[in-house]
């Protein structure tokens, strides 16, 4: 039933407008007395929604804190696999797109349709830019098996490994098998090209862990590399060998947990960026139809708030993942 009928209800705006008759705005809902009341309500609603977003991400931040407190060496070590340059560029991209978003709100408030649309397009470009960079980061890592869970330890190009990996995915319990079974499925340790890699792990990385440092990976799944001294310069992980990370004798146990929380947090953040792409596109569509002006720009403002919170989360994610010494 009724909003269309309702919005023509003429009994609005009498009591508090200082007695003067005001024309009814096209986007004013029937149950609000004034545009101001509607704007304030929408804004409070949005802030409450942002509070839920903060708590939603907050849960993951708590997981992060607990894991990092329990396995500080894992975070120090695994952070080196992340590309600080790409992370830094993405930070700048998001900050600049936040600026253009704030400018879009400004131009909407001052009735400048053209510049507002330009700013929204720029923001959209920023969102796409962020996702493209993220895409390269993700594919690179997935190629190198820097992923969560059992996949971290299983080279998928190895046929036995593929079978095992499928098996692990279906039956999480499978990784309870004795390590030698798994190792056999993966292949003889000697078949793995031993190309020990230089990882600037300062000091004994595992001193704070409750779990004793192991020369091999978690559950003895990795391949006992005996010559860390034969370190090679250059790329951290050689492109031709996606499983080289397993060959590092200094890899602390449970390194996969870093990637679990890394993908969880950046993945959830990425989902929010994608949602942002849709809502910004919607704003552009409405903006082109001329819906926004100084007295009605609520959607621009609210999407702006959303976009800033996406930026804000990244501001914390960047140092927490990329910049661990």
């Amino acid at each position: 039933m009724g909003t269309t009928a309702a919005s023509h209800d003429p009994s609005q705006g009498h009591q508090h407008g200082g007695g003067h008759e005001r024309a009814h705005h096209r986007f004013q809902a029937h149950h609000f007395e004034t545009m101001s009341q509607q704007f304030d309500s929408a804004k409070l609603g949005m802030w409450l929604f942002l509070a839920t977003e903060v708590l939603f991400f907050g849960g993951l931040f708590v997981v992060y804190a607990v894991l990092r407190a329990r396995f500080p060496e894992v975070f120090k070590y695994a952070s080196l696999y992340l590309d600080t340059q790409m992370g830094g560029i993405n930070t700048c991209v998001l900050i600049l797109s936040s600026l253009t978003m704030a400018m879009a709100v400004y131009f909407a408030q001052t009735n400048k349709k053209g510049p507002m649309l330009a700013c929204l397009w720029l923001t959209l470009a920023g969102a796409f830019g962020f996702m493209i960079i993220k895409y390269f980061e993700y594919t690179h890592k997935i190629h190198e098996h820097l992923v969560w869970g059992p996949g971290f330890y299983v080279p998928s190009h190895d046929r036995a490994g593929e079978a095992l990996s499928a098996d692990l995915a279906l039956h999480p319990d499978a990784e309870h098998q004795p390590a030698d079974v798994v190792a056999a499925a993966v292949g003889e340790p000697t078949q793995v090209p031993v190309k020990a890699i230089q990882l600037a792990v300062a000091g004994p990385a595992t001193e704070a862990s409750a779990i004793a440092p192991a020369a091999t990976g978690p559950r003895n799944l990795s391949f006992a590399v005996t010559e860390p001294s034969a370190a090679a310069e250059g790329d951290v992980i050689p492109a031709e060998d996606p499983t080289a990370h397993l060959a590092d004798a200094q890899m602390p146990p449970n390194t996969h947990l870093f990637f679990a929380i890394y993908y969880a947090m950046t993945g959830l953040h990425g989902v929010h960026v994608v949602v942002g792409i849709f809502v910004i596109s919607w704003l552009i569509w409405r903006g082109m139809k001329g819906h926004f002006n100084a007295s009605y720009y609520t959607p621009v403002d609210l999407v702006g708030l959303y976009w800033h919170i996406v930026d804000l989360v990244w501001i914390f994610l960047f140092p927490l993942f990329y910049l661990i010494d």
Partner: peptide, 16 residues
């Protein structure tokens, strides 16, 4: 300021 359609202006305009 008043909006272009005669409605009241809402919210705060921030200097760019």
């Amino acid at each position: 300021p008043q909006g272009d359609d005669g409605h009241e202006h809402v919210g705060h305009v921030v200097n760019p």
